[in-house]
Design a protein around this nucleic acid. Structure first.
Lengths: 221, 221
DNA sequence: CCTACATTCAATAATTCCGTTGAATGAACT
DNA sequence: AGTTCATTCAACGGAATTATTGAATGTAGG
């Protein structure tokens, strides 16, 4: 940790950032924070982890400059430091996608039939939405939906999907999305919907990427 | 390492990639490999590290899918797996640049005067080169220069810079580049040239970024 | 002031990571 | 076959990371 050599000091800074991203739990925290600011407590219950554990991870990420925190009454809200953090996450994901047979394997585990599991791109969805050709469902929990969602999307949390299936118009194309490209909820939703005979596909990305691309989002009152 | 939960399995894959980048020495290896394929031995002597150490780092990176290796006679050449690795490195660098006061501090250590230390962008340099207005110097060691360099650049390794200064036309604008945006050699070169009264600036990026942008490179015979 | 509650801190143990050492492998050359 | 040389392997110790526990801090509200 000596600062003698400036070149080494630089690499250590860069490595510190990568190291802060080098943990599955912290990556999951990033994905949740990409939906919007959250308190330690809220994150802990989403991830089903001890609060102290989450707190420490968040502090580690703060030290590396990934997140910032702000007190709000009794709570402390963490948020992503800036868009570059999400970009870094995406870049790492891209490396993993190209290499890792494991990633492929996981995805295939969801779909026996690999045909037409291709996700819908942002651009494609945006144009279909304009034409009113598609029902967009947001499978995230209601609280995340309330903060921001795609315009016109209906909230159908995974836990309630089965019971609320009758509300969906059969035959109409359905596109499901959730937190991000590898958030498993939309995979599960599409698998479930297909099993029931719906014409369902997945949005390639999640809400954060949609927002980052400068497209409109809606918020509930 | 259990594969029970697919969501967790994904995050672990992603984390593994980030972890492989989360070490200063490995990042330096990435930067060198970005110049072109190298043997373990060549990398070890560039970084001044024990060979076994470098070998292990490279194997860790190979496990994470960052590099691939190929035997060539007695040597084993490692190379970056694909461009996405360099993109991930750049993304991490970007996070560090936004946050880290330390990064700022290091850069300022080189320049007392902060004015006109702004780097030249790729686009700007490309157009000036077309107009023949600028002398481009490549301050990397001769072997790296030989593999690939900017068209028309002259090789002036940092170690020989002082002795070969007379070869430079005074008054003409000089742009120096090296391995990448934070490779310190070009910082040092510019500082030295300025001290001698030359009108010198740094290219914002290094050779790998130039190549990745699809611009032309030259190679020596 | 006292309580409730969100968060952080401190201390611990289990695990993993890192660098070093010296031996083993494997290809090229004599 | 035997030698040389690049690389890898195996094993060790020290350092850092991680999850867990329980206590401490600090804010809000009665």
């Amino acid at each position: 940790m000596s600062i003698s050599n400036p070149k080494q000091a630089l690499y250590e800074q860069f490595a510190a950032v990568a190291k802060a991203l080098g943990n599955p739990q912290r990556l999951e925290l990033v994905e949740h924070l990409a939906q919007g600011p959250r308190s330690v407590d809220a994150l802990a219950s989403k991830l089903c982890l001890p609060i102290a554990n989450v707190s420490q991870h968040l502090q580690a990420m703060r030290r590396a400059g990934l997140v910032t925190s702000e007190r709000d009454g009794k709570f402390i809200n963490y948020r992503l430091a800036d868009e570059s953090v999400l970009a870094a996450f995406a870049a790492i994901r891209a490396v993993a996608e190209r290499h890792s047979a494991e990633v492929e394997r996981v995805v295939r585990g969801w779909f026996d039939q690999r045909d037409n599991m291709e996700p819908v791109s942002r651009e494609e969805l945006a144009s279909r939405m304009n034409d009113g050709l598609v029902t967009v469902i947001d499978v995230r929990p209601a609280d995340e939906f309330a903060l921001a969602h795609l315009p016109g999307a209906i909230n159908l949390p995974l836990s309630e999907l089965e019971s609320r299936l009758p509300a969906l118009e059969a035959g109409r194309e359905i596109v499901a999305y959730c937190r991000g490209p590898w958030c498993v909820m939309s995979f599960e939703a599409v698998a479930e919907l297909r099993k029931r005979g719906f014409n369902a596909r997945r949005l390639e990305d999640g809400l954060p990427e949609w927002k980052a691309a400068g497209l409109d989002v809606e918020a509930s009152a």
